[in-house]
Nucleic acid binder design. Structure first.
Length: 462
RNA sequence: GUCCCCAUCGUCUAGCCUGGCCUAGGACAUCGGCCUUUCACGCCGAAAACAGGGGUUCAAAUCCCCUUGGGGACGCCA
């Protein structure tokens, strides 16, 4: 049987990294087994749904490189299917109409809660006469006692007491299915073989098992993956900063780094930390998924991102960096200069934005000095040094790495200064700060004109 | 409150199923050192964990029970 998995987000917001991770797992499992991967949009709650959210989720999936073979299928386009099936359950006596209103339910729930109890709805107000307006929801008849067993790939057999499960609504009074019902119908219709989803759904599984049974469908295999927690051990939320996938993109993370990071949160393959997408597809297995919740570790993401930036072919890096630069009004273009800058900055950048931030002095017409750097290195005593540098660098025939290097060595010999004593003032003059790539490389990239101009400017600023 | 899941360095994890090879391995972060023209990179090294208590066994991180702690769920949300 062909493996078929799905990712089924509800379009009520952006795709966050927890959802992205389960999407990745499903995608990997399908790809690993030459199966199919379905994208299904669970938009059965009209009050919470937004169109922008669908677009954003799809954009995020694409950015992550997760392609799907079917869909996106919107549940809202399948209402008739759910309604028909609900009707069948009604007719066969497995479900019944419930006339109680949501308001009444809420009141009742509150009353229970005050007594320290939880309302378990078991065929209580199914009486049509009670509500002349005749609108109703449809509830599934669930067993009053006994044990419902659920088999989970990661957790083994999990048992639930039937009396803990109420007669849950499968079709709302507005004709829309509820989550559990739509999931079961769709998973069966789409012939999903493996459901990989968040831990928070484990509790829904017995309800869905009941539905699969009532509809005489085959039950897919399920694996409940633990959730991602914030650094405080609490459920991930806006409080924890960036949680949406696209926010990571905008912060300058590479998708391959995010994917690698997310996969390693709850999955492992021995001691290996770095995985290409091909390797993941080759090595991904369900049974090496972890069972315990994982706390997000942004530092490790940074490390991975830095790693992937270091490894990325310069040309591809340029393509990613250029738009960010241009957005900042930087006149960069794909040329030899950018290539040299990439060469120098890739080792010093944790994110693409980081990279761009460090590159500004290569393109700016004029630079600003950091106060501390200026105070320390742009001093009267360095004026002769700057003058010597100007003379030497002006007299160079061909302004390149080896000639600059040679010129600086001559300055070392003539002044008797240590190289560092020359490099730092020069660095401040050329970049405005005390941190940069090697000074020879900086000078070479800048070119003679800018170097001389900036040295002169350093002198006049003293 | 009830039910369900989970528990190895600060964090992600290997080892657990199929007890002995574990003096518990790797990675991030941290700290030290080397390299050095600043900052990084890189390299070398250090510190750092089997939640607690009972069993079972010749032997337990590994199996069982309890406690504790964390997470999840208890919607006509998903």
């Amino acid at each position: 049987m062909t493996v078929k998995t799905r990712f089924a987000p509800s379009p009520t917001g952006s795709l966050h990294i927890g959802g992205a991770r389960t999407a990745i797992f499903n995608w990997l499992y399908a790809r690993r087994n030459n199966g199919k991967f379905v994208l299904r949009i669970e938009d059965t709650d009209r009050s919470r749904f937004t169109k922008e959210s669908i677009d954003e989720i799809i954009g995020a999936m694409r950015w992550l490189g997760l392609d799907w073979d079917e869909g996106p299928v919107r549940q809202s386009s399948r209402l008739r299917v759910y309604q028909e099936l609900a009707r069948e359950l009604l007719e066969s006596g497995k479900a019944y109409k419930c006339y109680v209103t949501p308001e009444e339910l809420e009141e009742r729930r509150k009353a229970y809660l005050e007594r320290g109890e939880v309302l378990r709805y078991k065929r209580e107000w199914a009486n049509e006469n009670a509500h002349p307006d005749n609108s109703y929801s449809i509830r599934l008849k669930t067993p009053d006692d006994g044990i419902i067993e659920v088999k989970d790939i990661l957790r083994g057999v999990v048992r639930f007491n039937a009396d803990e499960i109420d007669d849950f609504v499968i079709l709302r009074r507005d004709g829309f299915p509820t989550y559990n019902f739509a999931v079961v119908v769709d998973d069966a219709d789409m012939k999903i073989t493996h459901v990989i989803r968040g831990d928070d759904h484990l509790i829904n599984t017995p309800r869905q098992a009941l539905l699969f049974d009532a509809l005489s469908y085959d039950v897919p295999k399920v694996a409940h993956v633990s959730m991602i927690l914030g650094s405080d051990g609490k459920r991930l939320s806006k409080r924890h900063g960036a949680t949406s996938v696209l926010a990571y993109r905008d912060a300058g993370y590479l998708s391959e780094a995010l994917v690698n990071y997310l996969v390693r949160l709850g999955w492992s393959h021995g001691d290996q930390e770095i995985f290409s997408k091909e390797e993941l597809i080759d090595k991904f297995t369900l049974d090496s998924l972890g069972r315990s919740p994982a706390v997000s570790n942004p530092e490790k993401l940074n490390w991975l991102n830095a790693y992937y930036i270091k490894k990325k072919p310069a040309k591809q890096l340029a393509e990613l960096i250029l738009p960010i630069m241009q957005e900042k009004g930087c006149p960069a273009q794909v040329d030899n200069k950018l290539a040299m800058i990439i060469e120098q900055l890739r080792e010093r950048s944790k994110t693409l934005n980081d990279f761009v931030a460090q590159s500004s002095y290569f393109y700016a017409d004029d630079i600003e000095y950091e106060q501390k750097a200026k105070d320390k290195f742009l001093k009267e005593e360095n004026i002769p040094l700057f003058n010597t540098l100007i003379v030497k660098l002006t007299s160079i025939q061909k302004f390149n790495h080896s000639s600059i290097h040679k010129a600086l060595e001559e300055v070392v010999n003539e002044t008797g200064l240590k190289f560092g004593k020359i490099a730092q003032p020069m660095r401040v003059a050329l970049t405005g700060g005390t941190v940069s790539p090697g000074i020879i490389e900086v000078a070479e990239i800048l070119g003679r004109n800018k170097v001389i101009t900036r040295l002169n400017r350093a002198i006049s600023s003293i």
